[in-house]
Design a protein around this nucleic acid. Structure first.
Lengths: 336, 336
DNA sequence: GTCGAGGTGGCAACCGGTTGCACGCCGCTG
DNA sequence: CAGCGGCGTGCAACCGGTTGCCACCTCGAC
């Protein structure tokens, strides 16, 4: 039983149906749709009329086979649950739609294995892949690059176009802000160990702290979720820091909540600073001070980079670095 | 230039390559992958070995052509920006992945035209479609149903399987809660006029209010966003209601913020009640009282309903009604 | 020894388009 | 009026798989 259809649905018209009804060759019908200027106006209009009457529309799958293009792009994120990716998804979807491409979304569940699996299933059937915060080993990424146009977000790999946020700038802004408030000992609440963003943020924060004469301690690696924030709060209290910079806003919000329950005022007893400025950072209480780049722009840029690779002469692999800015709200203040 | 590939990438092995290398017919290679039990163990293992050596993997597009199935499902939402859909997307993605299907995501931008356009592009290349809070005219939905397995979320149409939240129950819970606090005159802040959810919520709230002896006024139709909440606050103040039930949490949060800026305490001066319990409802200040169903479950159920239609004997069109529950937080209290 | 059943694998058509090449026709030039 | 170039269209191969049908082989039963 090929082509399982809805009971009662009539078979779709094909090029051959149209060709027969119009008294032309299938190639003519095909060209009317793919390269209309190749066909004379009278024939074209006639074919179009017949096609319209029959309700003919080219089948995208059948078109994809010989042409090799599905007009489809894939976006792989480590966790759809994380609001950080909402903006990325949104930006990517918008830009893809603008270029008349369809976005395929997959969730890697924070696991390199699941990511790999999805990739196996997807790679052949899309025209390009955006890997956001990939947990994949570098070798796998290298291999992937040879199969399909590839763009990385918040991750770097030699020769692969990428868009990354400027973590050095961001952490410098965060450290400067805390230093200006008078903090001397700050903690960094880390995210997943396999995350490139976490590594660069931690290094950047250390560097910035050193320049400013701050002591900076790493509080550990936490799951980047609100629940993960609980442990952050506990650890920060034990580590006797007066401020904590969290790997992301979720962790920061979770930490604030826990601190509140423990009777520690924010920012009175502890300042909390997040990263990414997700939806929610502004409406939580106290509103979260956070450092972020325009992530929707990151999504749009990633798609642009992907689309650029489809042109005959692919531009040199580029890395786009997104500027960050610090949004000061209520979760940071002077120590003590 | 068919099959535009990455410079330097080798052509993928095909069934014919494997067949030649293994000394068998292409049909045998095909069957080794699609119906292994049809092939004797020795041949199968030999073919598998050769295929492995050549790095052969069946091309999903080529498979889709004769089989008619792409193992792909589409989800259309009116606005990816709206956190309400995050949970829906997440649930749908998870369930699709579990069934080894890939989810295609499209954003209709709150417009029936854009929705229609996306549908045109997508319908042929996916095995089924989930339409969430569709703005499409009923006739279009009817027609779509004949083309592809279809499931509606928060919308009803004769003969189309759907999953909807029980708005009557939800609004009854909301009204009862407000009545028990002593409110007598409440406002309803409506969402998009073309929204089925908005219509049923409004009607349900009216009915519940009547039963409880409350006066209920409609404040108008607002864009279902935080910004839309500004107008809600102003209108509510003018309408002299002591509580407002908002079409969704975004509107409620926006209204609370505006009320705060106007110096009106929540819930002291005005109670605010939302719908959907989105991410953010709990962390905003004051935490939002809201009535909601499990939307991630809605996403999972929608996919299940879609998958069920693929079986030979499609079950009778079903409508799954999701129970709601009221989460009482800090945004509601007694009047005055 | 013959016949039949069951299992294995090959042939070739097919899914629905695209496209290189060739051919016929037209008008224009010399 | 022959020759030539260019345009519009058709023929047929092809993209990479799947599958109905048939041929062949083997083995067991009579």
């Amino acid at each position: 039983m090929p082509h399982p259809t809805i009971p009662g649905a009539r078979r779709r018209a094909t090029v051959r149906d149209v060709a027969a009804a119009a008294g032309v060759a299938t190639s003519t019908v095909s060209r009317v749709f793919s390269r209309p200027e190749r066909i004379s106006a009278p024939t074209r209009q006639h074919v179009l009329a017949v096609a319209g009457r029959l309700g003919y529309r080219p089948d995208p799958i059948a078109q994809a086979l010989p042409s090799g293009s599905t007009r489809t792009l894939a976006l792989l994120v480590p966790d759809i649950t994380n609001p950080f990716f909402f903006d990325l998804i949104r930006g990517a979807e918008r830009q893809a739609a603008a270029a008349e491409f369809t976005l395929v979304l997959a969730d890697a569940g924070e696991s390199a294995d699941a990511e790999s699996l999805h990739l196996d299933r997807l790679t052949r059937s899309v025209d390009g892949v955006v890997l956001a915060s990939s947990r994949l080993p570098g070798t796998r990424i290298e291999a992937l690059r040879l199969e399909r146009p590839l763009v990385l977000v918040n991750r770097k790999s030699a020769g692969v176009p990428a868009v990354v946020v400027d973590n050095h700038q961001g952490m410098a802004q965060a450290a400067a802000h805390l230093a200006s408030l008078g903090h001397e000992r700050v903690g960094y609440a880390g995210g997943p160990e396999s995350s490139w963003s976490d590594r660069t943020r931690w290094r950047a924060l250390q560097a910035a702290a050193r320049r400013l004469g701050l002591t900076c301690v790493r509080l550990g690696a936490f799951p980047p979720t609100i629940d993960g924030g609980t442990a952050v709060a506990e650890t920060a209290l034990v580590a006797r820091v007066s401020a904590v910079v969290a790997f992301n806003d979720l962790l920061a919000i979770g930490a604030m909540r826990r601190l509140g329950r423990r009777g520690v005022a924010v920012p009175g007893g502890m300042s909390v600073l997040g990263c990414d400025d997700i939806f929610g950072a502004e409406i939580c209480a106290p509103a979260l001070t956070t450092v972020a780049a325009d992530i929707e722009l990151a999504g749009r840029t990633a798609i642009d980079l992907l689309l650029a690779q489809r042109s005959a002469i692919p531009p040199p692999a580029r890395t786009i670095v997104l500027q960050t800015h610090l949004t000061i709200r209520q979760s940071t203040g002077g120590p003590r």
